[in-house]
Every structure is written in C-alpha cells, then in structure tokens.
Design a protein around this nucleic acid. Structure first.
Lengths: 190, 190
DNA sequence: GCCTGGTTAAACCGATCGGTTTCCATGCCG
DNA sequence: CGGCATGGAAACCGATCGGTTTAACCAGGC
C-alpha cells in the first residue's frame, strides 16, 4: 500500500473540507481544498463525484461528534430534562466564545447554499431535525404543556444565538440560558 | 440628457443588486448583475468603486424601507410598546410566508461575507443595531425589568426565526408571536 | 526485469471571476 | 459644422472556477 492509503486520503480531505468550508465559506475552490488536504484533484474526484459531495460528506462526518457534544451520552445524563436542555445552551455559549467561532456550520451551509436540494443542505437539515427531536423528547419528558412548541422555540433561540454570535454582533454571556430558562418556566417544564 | 441619466442607472443597478444578491447570494458575478440591470460594466465602475460597494450601497438603500415596514411611522403608533414589539414579529411572519422569502437580507449578508470589515457587513450590522435599539426603547417604555436583556432576547428570536424560515426548515405560523409573548410576560413588560 | 494498480503533479478544458480599456455612437455645446 | 463629453458594447486582462486528462512515479507480485 502506498504511503497514504485511500482511507486516510478520504479522512484528510474531509478534515480539510470541514475546516476550510467553515472558515472560508462554501465558495472555496477545489484547488485550494486539495492543496490544503495534501490530496491530488484526481484522487478527490475518484473518491467523490463532485465538490458538493465532498461538502455534504464532511458535514455528515461531523454529525456524531456534534450530537455527542451537545447531548451528553446516555450513561451520564443523570440530570433532569431541564438540565439536559440547558446543557445544550451552555455548550453553545462556551463554543461561541472561541475566537474561531463562526456560527453553527449546518445553519451556515443552509444560508450560503440557498438551494434546499443541495446534498449538503439535506445533511444540514438532518442535523437541525436531530436537535429539534432532542428538544422535543426532553420537553415531553419534562412535562411541558406543549412539547412541540417549546422545542421549536428552543431552536429559534439556538439558531438565532449561533448566527448572531458567529457574525460577531452578540456575545452570549448567559443570554441564551436566561432566555431558555424563561421559556422553560413559561411552558411548565420541570 | 441621454435616454437613461446617471441617477436612473444607479437606481436600476441598486434595484437589481438588491434582488439578485438576495436571491442568488453574494457570489453573484458582476457580468450577470450589469446585464440584468441594463447597465454597462463601465458605467457601474464609474458609479461604484467595486462590486462590494454596490452590495453595500444596495443594502443601505433598502434600510429606510426596511425600518418603516417593521416599525410603524411615529404618527400611527397609537398602541402600547408591547403592541409595537409584536407588530415587528407579525410583519416577519407575514413576510416569511412568501415563496420568495430567503431570510433577513442583512443577516444573510453577515453570514455569507464572513468578513466583519466588509463594507456590506458594516451596513448590515447597522441594520441589526437599529432593530436592537428599537426593541430596547420599547422595552424600557413598557417597563421591562431589564430592557437591554429583553431587547437582546427579541433579537435572538427575530434572527433565529428569519434564518430558519428562510432556509425552509420552519414555518412561523404564530411561533414567534407566541415566543415573544412569553418573553414579554416574563420580563414584566406592559 | 517487468507488469499492474494506484498515486502524484501538472497541463488542459471551457467558463467565469472582478476589473480595465478600447472603440464607437450619440448628443450637447460653441 | 467642429469639438467634446458621455456612456454603451465588447474585447481584453490575469486569475480562478469545477472538472478531466496526461504522463511520470512508486509500490507489490510474478
């Protein structure tokens, strides 16, 4: 096998794609991407059908890590539904304080690629639906008067906060947790 | 005077820029923009220093209309602060129902141009600060316990809702007004 | 030694990018 | 009528776009 086998070429490509597309936006060129990943264009086009597919695959690959970061693994979720919901926003606030933070990569992809049919848009919508489902489950478990409504409200706060913090027009020092607490209280969630 | 004087060339350029940059994103080409506006590239570069300046100017030109649409003119704002705040979100919900809706153009510009120094980013930030100031004024007038906090919370809801509705992952049938009502109640605003 | 499979860098493709320049038609002024 | 400013169409600039192809290279198996 060569010095770099096919799997690691794929990995390096997806790693570079995740970082560069996030930092520079989806209009990043294939040339730049491949150079930065240390993979030839020929290999890239053997592994993926198009640049769009690379973007979609890189977003999809980050999903499990993304979900694990926001929702604690089921073995350690000893807290209440309210605590699990607030945990998501504490993570968001912490992440948004990092200098490289540019907002949620899935929301950014949906905004930049205005086409909802784009393969990466489909992946991004999946990420958003997962978080909505998580909120809905916790809301129902916590006895919210309207779990679906509360979950949608939490998504508004989450996406609004990540977009504003990413665009550097807001600093989330406790803003989202205060807002979410108000909404949890209003919905009667334990 | 020629068949099209300088002012109308500028107007047609800015009108086309507003529509096309909104629909297609900021990576739209100058060629396409000028062809669609019926203005030669030469004239465009006589009126503006760069494509970036055209984008910034087109966003700036829409600002008064944008503000007027969200906040009723001072001669007809007979309502309470709470009503004036809710009016903003009723307008947002109505706009987001239109098939061409793609989200708030100012937030979209900030997300797409990741550079906060970009001239269009400066204009967009100004639009966001205006709305924040409007919310803060109304919140204070309505006797909110913490007017600044409430205003920031309302911005989270506004931007979250516009981004999600624009990306077609949410339909705002009363969602924002319900959320805003809960936040207004929690803050003790009349 | 030689073939094969998979890699690479780099040339190449037509198209488009943001931006400049040339040329010409038009219209206004003296 | 001559001279001049204006602005439109389009050529042109070097660079880059997404994507394909060529040619050389380097491993392992025979």
């Amino acid at each position: 096998m060569a010095t770099t086998d096919k799997a690691s070429s794929r990995d390096r490509l997806l790693d570079a794609a995740a970082e560069l597309f996030y930092r520079e936006g989806v209009s990043l060129g294939v040339e730049t991407l491949c150079r930065s990943a240390g993979v030839s264009k020929r290999s890239m086009y053997q592994l993926f059908a198009s640049k769009d597919e690379v973007l979609a695959a890189s977003l999809a690959r980050q999903l499990p890590e993304y979900e694990e970061r926001l929702a604690p693994g089921p073995q350690e979720d000893a807290g209440t539904p309210r605590e699990r919901i607030l945990h998501v926003f504490e993570r968001l606030e912490k992440a948004s304080a990092e200098p490289a933070y540019q907002g949620c990569p899935y929301l950014a992809a949906l905004v930049e690629l205005k086409d909802p049919e784009h393969p990466a848009s489909v992946v991004a919508r999946g990420a958003k639906e997962w978080l909505l489902g998580f909120f809905r489950t916790q809301a129902a478990e916590g006895g919210a008067r309207d779990a679906e409504l509360l979950a949608r409200q939490l998504m508004l706060v989450f996406d609004g906060a990540s977009a504003r913090a990413g665009a550097r027009i807001e600093t989330l020092d406790g803003l989202t947790t205060a807002t979410v607490t108000a909404l949890l209280d209003a919905s009667g969630t334990r």
